[in-house]
Amino acid sequence: MSEKLEQTFVQLLQENQNIIHKICRLYTNGEDAHKDLFQEITIQLWKAFPKFRGDSKFSTWAYRVALNTAITLYRKTKRSISTVEFEGRQHFLNDVEYDYEEEEQLKLMYKAVYQLNDIEKALIFMYLEDKDYQEISETLGISEVNARVKMNRIKGKLKKILNPLEA
């Protein structure tokens, strides 16, 4: 593949790398696994790049390849999530808005999301990224109605994980 193509790709990926980081954060546990999946997604994106026409945003295009890699191609076995991982999440709230109760809630929420399965994580990911149901349905290959129904079920599931007694 030509050098120019390579340059364009590296530039685009560098600018949009947070998408991949976010997927890695959702699907892996620990720094090594994160880096590993990041690399695999990068390779898959690069392999698919010649087919990227530029008629959609790079980020939109990257969602599909990156999620597919996380759901189907990544072969590392997942370790169970440790509580230590969540202690480090504190810095996600910056100092100005530091709110102990909110932070505690967020921590629990992240923990709950980790307990979802691969497909549910993909749906939640797209929801958090503010994607509409049409894009969710196209990416996963399910109908829009079903994506909506499933999303509601996931919300219910998260609620149940957060408040096991109420549900």
Binding site: Q11, N18, R25, T42, L73
Partner: peptide
Amino acid sequence: NTFEQVSTNDIYVMIHKKSSSL
């Protein structure tokens, strides 16, 4: 911005690595 950013150089190295996909 909380993720450790990967440099363009790192990306160059990565795309020349072999995939370990399923």
